[in-house]
Simulated scan of single mutants.
Amino acid sequence: MALPAILTNAKPAAATWRALGLLAILLIVLFVFSGRVSMVQVMDNARQAAPLGLIALGQALILLMGRLDLSVGATAGLANVVLAASFAGNMDNMATALAITVFFGLLVGLANGILVVVLRIPAFLATLATSLVIAGAILVYTGGSPGGSIPAGFRVITEGWLFGILPWSVVIWTACSLILLVFVHYSLKGRKMLLSGANARAAQRNGIAADRMVIFSFVLASFMATLGGILLSSITGMASIGIADTYTVDSIAAAVIGGALFSGGVFLPAGVAAGSLILFFLQSLLYVLSLPPAARFVLQGSIIVIALALSNFKKDR
């Protein structure tokens, strides 16, 4: 497809605008109560939100196929433990550490895809089982005390800034979002995924191997979760058991706030990014308002309800 055609068709969906609107409202509320919201604050929150943003992109790919992945948090946690152990604090081990980490991540995605497609296990049960296996394997491997560390040279991907304006982690997040946007909406395989997610039977009648698309989506989602785990490791500088456990629920929330549908057939990277940022700015708002951490779940649930209500209202009209 020619570049002008891509640019013409690359208009944000209504759900993306709603997510961006909610993000703008949240920033305004934060400004009113804190007295200031600087660009440095916004970028710093975006830097910290990048791991969730990447994991949520993977979750959105699974939702695109009309399924759910409950193993993305465990996969990111696995990446954290494996990367730290493989690095062992030595920058010379970078290529090996990244290769091993990505390999295990892809293996998780392949296992999920096989469980769902070949064994016909419902996706949420299959991925829940996978997450438990990963958690158990990590405990056995580490003995409850993960070792290794991330060298300072590697941590530049989350601590460094491009021209002092954009954090490198935000650059990586943006690049992945754009690549997936172009792939899903403008490549032949991506369009097959969209059709398979919207209507698997229709896809099969048109000669599309819908099952292969499902397996591919799980592999791709696990790869994104692994990238998220790598960025998270760069932020913390060390391995920690259960470090990404909350990211499973948060990734679903971010994708849904961004316009993803449980029925499948929709992939909106910009909306997912807005949803991820909303969840992180909520934490800043809670701090400013001196509210307990439990209030985050109330606000998070309320925002999801608002996003879904606005979506349903738009459909009814």
Score class of each variant (00 low, 15 high):
residue 163 F to H: 05
residue 36 R to Y: 11
residue 166 L to V: 15
residue 147 G to C: 00
residue 185 H to C: 03
residue 189 K to G: 06
residue 298 V to P: 10
residue 207 G to F: 00
residue 253 A to F: 12
residue 199 N to M: 03
residue 305 V to C: 11
residue 47 R to C: 12
residue 267 F to K: 10
residue 63 L to V: 01
residue 309 A to S: 08
residue 282 L to D: 04
residue 313 F to V: 12
residue 205 R to A: 15
residue 223 F to M: 15
residue 301 G to Y: 13
residue 92 D to F: 08
residue 232 L to E: 13
residue 287 Y to F: 13
residue 77 G to Q: 11
residue 164 G to E: 11
residue 266 V to A: 14
residue 106 L to E: 09
residue 32 V to D: 04
residue 81 V to I: 15
residue 258 G to Y: 07
residue 220 L to V: 03
residue 184 V to L: 03
residue 116 V to Q: 05
residue 214 V to L: 08
residue 96 T to A: 15
residue 276 S to M: 08
residue 230 I to A: 03
residue 43 M to H: 13
residue 215 I to Q: 07
residue 14 A to R: 00
residue 218 F to Y: 05
residue 55 I to F: 12
residue 159 E to Y: 14
residue 199 N to D: 14
residue 265 G to E: 13
residue 169 S to W: 09
residue 276 S to D: 09
residue 46 A to R: 02
residue 166 L to N: 09
residue 282 L to G: 10
residue 293 P to I: 05
residue 130 T to H: 06
residue 273 A to H: 12
residue 165 I to Y: 05
residue 153 G to K: 08
residue 262 F to N: 09
residue 213 M to D: 09
residue 220 L to T: 07
residue 122 P to H: 00
residue 129 A to Q: 04
residue 72 V to M: 10
residue 296 R to G: 01
residue 96 T to H: 10
residue 146 P to G: 04
residue 61 L to A: 06
residue 60 A to F: 02
residue 191 R to E: 14
residue 213 M to P: 02
residue 258 G to L: 05
residue 101 T to L: 11
residue 11 K to P: 06
residue 290 S to W: 00
residue 315 K to I: 01
residue 44 D to N: 15
residue 308 L to W: 00
residue 76 A to T: 12
residue 272 V to K: 03
residue 247 Y to G: 09
residue 190 G to N: 06
residue 31 F to C: 08
residue 224 M to G: 01
residue 115 L to S: 14
residue 158 T to L: 08
residue 191 R to L: 15
residue 189 K to F: 08
residue 145 S to F: 13
residue 128 L to A: 13
residue 89 G to Y: 04
residue 237 G to Q: 04
residue 193 M to S: 02
residue 227 L to P: 01
residue 130 T to R: 09
residue 173 W to G: 11
residue 48 Q to G: 10
residue 233 S to N: 09
residue 171 V to W: 03
residue 153 G to C: 02
residue 79 A to M: 12
residue 206 N to L: 07
residue 197 G to L: 04
residue 172 I to K: 15
residue 226 T to E: 08
residue 75 T to E: 12
residue 214 V to Y: 00
residue 285 L to W: 02
residue 309 A to K: 01
residue 193 M to W: 05
residue 236 T to H: 02
residue 95 A to Y: 05
residue 173 W to S: 13
residue 14 A to L: 06
residue 246 T to M: 06
residue 108 V to C: 15
residue 203 A to Q: 07
residue 292 P to W: 07
residue 227 L to S: 04
residue 167 P to N: 14
residue 41 Q to T: 08
residue 222 S to M: 12
residue 121 I to Q: 03
residue 221 A to N: 09
residue 287 Y to R: 12
